[in-house]
Simulated assay, not measured.
Amino acid sequence: MRLMAFDYGTKRIGIAVSDPLQIIATAMDTVHPEKIWDFLKDYLQREAVETFVVGKPLQTDGTASESAHHVVGFVRRLQREYPDIPVVEVDERFTSKIASQAILQSGIKKNKRRDKGLVDTISATLILQTYMDTQKY
């Protein structure tokens, strides 16, 4: 079964999934928050997901960031809509910065680097990979 990760934002939600063996995290898509529930319904009809992993927005001192209350609402609805799929929150500090650096170093053309959705999907991939790495030990 796959793992699915979310980098929640009020304009876009970056989504990443694992392979069925849960070895590799892959960037999947970016979806507007209003369309996430239709997206999930469609995806979960085709693929089995074992766990949802949601990036938890924290400040550098470990306290909740200003956007944390949006994520709390998203997590609650995930739990309500899909009670059989556990939801795990993972510290997402610095994922957007790391994603931006990775994009810059990858040699992607400048106009593609401006695509904020790309940062969101890579951030979701980093969140998922972080979770998977902690589960191996």
Rank of each mutant, 00 (worst) to 15 (best):
K136C: 02
Q79V: 07
L118G: 05
A64R: 14
H70M: 12
D115N: 15
G9W: 00
P86K: 05
D42I: 14
V88Y: 06
M1Y: 13
S100G: 09
Y137I: 11
E66M: 12
I108P: 10
G107V: 06
A68M: 12
E47N: 10
L126H: 12
V119R: 03
T95S: 04
G117P: 01
M4A: 05
F39W: 11
V71Q: 01
P86C: 04
A48R: 12
H69R: 14
K109I: 09
P83I: 09
I108M: 07
L104P: 02
K116W: 09
Y131P: 05
K35Y: 04
K35M: 09
I23R: 11
L44M: 05
L128P: 05
D19H: 10
E50Q: 13
Q129H: 04
H32K: 14
S18A: 06
Q45R: 14
Q101I: 13
G9S: 02
V75Q: 01
M28Q: 07
D42S: 15
Q45G: 15
F6K: 01
G55T: 02
T10I: 08
K116R: 11
M28I: 09
R80L: 13
L104I: 07
G9D: 00
D84W: 11
A25Q: 00
K41T: 08
T130D: 02
K35C: 03
T60E: 12
M1P: 02
F39P: 02
T125M: 12
L40T: 02
L58I: 02
D84Q: 15
R114H: 08
A64T: 13
T125N: 07
I108V: 12
R77L: 13
L40A: 02
V75P: 14
F6I: 00
H32A: 11
L21D: 14
K109G: 11
A124T: 06
K41Q: 08
I85M: 02
F52T: 11
R114G: 04
Q79M: 08
D42Q: 15
T30D: 00
P20G: 09
L126W: 11
V72W: 07
Q135M: 08
H70P: 15
S106A: 03
E92C: 03
R12L: 02
T130W: 01
L21C: 11
E89S: 13
M1N: 13
I108Q: 04
Q22A: 12
M132V: 09
T134R: 08
F52R: 07
D38W: 13
I24F: 12
T95M: 00
V53L: 00
E50M: 11
R46F: 15
D38L: 15
D29T: 14
R2P: 01
V71G: 04
G73T: 10
